[in-house]
């Protein structure tokens, strides 16, 4: 075998290897690009699901939405265990992540079973087993959103949302104010208390109007939050026994509105 033959053969071998290496690199790059694009598209779709629609309520014990989306396996055991057909699994066109359990308060609210059957068989912990008392559930927060159509606020005695509330006089109270229209009657205003409302949705479902004046929204939408640094003076005083601000502020007594410009006593 001459040296020339050998070098030719080596060259052939190298060329063959180059072709297959080139093909390998091309195919790998193609696959990586295709998968990457697909991943971006899917991420785009899924990220949208983080913000679910206002009428979507999660079952009792549901983790905060971000954790819920990371954990719920979408098996529907909670739906099967719900005795009132409240819960359903989202289909692709529902306004919430496909396959996850939710309910619409106006259609079928949560009946707040004492034994919380929807949680008991959850295989993922997306419905937290730490919830032992259904009164501690925070599925949403009721908001009396339309004062101009609420019958009670017109001075009538509807009271339905107040009376159906499972935590009557805790989650919803009736606050009596003067009826300025008749000047002789009282207005019984339904007031929701965020520290007690479970978001079961019975008030929204029972509202006698064609479209409910009181609605239950996910807590992420409806609930406020105090600034982390904020302190209420009277609470601090109770806790420490000392005033937060030791000196007495002299503030003028005035009504909101234009009284500042009215030249009232400052």
């Amino acid at each position: 075998m001459s040296a020339g033959d050998k070098s030719n053969r080596d060259k052939g071998k190298t060329a063959g290897r180059n072709v297959s290496r080139r093909r390998f690199l091309t195919e790998t790059a193609q696959a990586a690009c295709a998968v990457g694009l697909l991943g971006l598209g899917l991420t785009f779709v899924a990220e949208k699901s983080r913000v679910h629609a206002a009428q979507v309520l999660r079952p009792p014990g549901a983790l905060p939405e971000d954790d819920f989306l990371a954990s719920c396996l979408r098996c529907g055991i909670c739906v099967n265990d719900c005795p009132y057909n409240t819960l359903k699994l989202a289909t692709p066109e529902d306004p919430v992540a496909t396959g996850t359990p939710w309910f619409n308060a106006r259609e079928i609210p949560c009946e707040m079973c004492d034994d919380i059957p929807c949680i008991s068989h959850c295989p993922s912990g997306a419905l937290s087993p730490e919830l032992k008392d259904i009164d501690d559930a925070r599925m949403g927060l009721a908001v009396l959103i339309d004062r101009e159509n609420c019958l009670n606020l017109q001075g009538l005695r509807c009271d339905v949302c107040y009376r159906v509330c499972p935590l009557i006089d805790e989650a919803i109270t009736l606050q009596r104010t003067r009826n300025t229209r008749t000047q002789v009657h009282a207005v019984f205003e339904p007031v929701v208390h965020s520290d007690a409302c479970t978001g079961c949705g019975k008030c929204e479902q029972a509202c006698v109007l064609d479209v409910a004046a009181i609605k239950v929204f996910p807590r992420e939408l409806a609930q406020g939050e105090l600034g982390k640094h904020y302190r209420f003076g009277w609470q601090e005083e109770e806790r420490t026994g000392e005033k937060l601000v030791p000196w007495e502020n002299k503030m003028p007594a005035r009504m909101p509105g234009n009284s500042l410009n009215d030249g009232g006593d400052l």
Binding site: T43, V45, E47, L73, K88, T91, E93, T98, G99
Partner: peptide, 24 residues
């Protein structure tokens, strides 16, 4: 993303979920 993204489009679970809980 901390989201179970595959479960949005997983056709295998979709068939059972659809037949048992509504396909949409």
């Amino acid at each position: 993303t901390e989201i179970l993204i595959w479960e949005f489009i997983n056709p295998i679970s979709l068939v059972y979920r659809g037949l048992l809980f509504g396909l949409g």
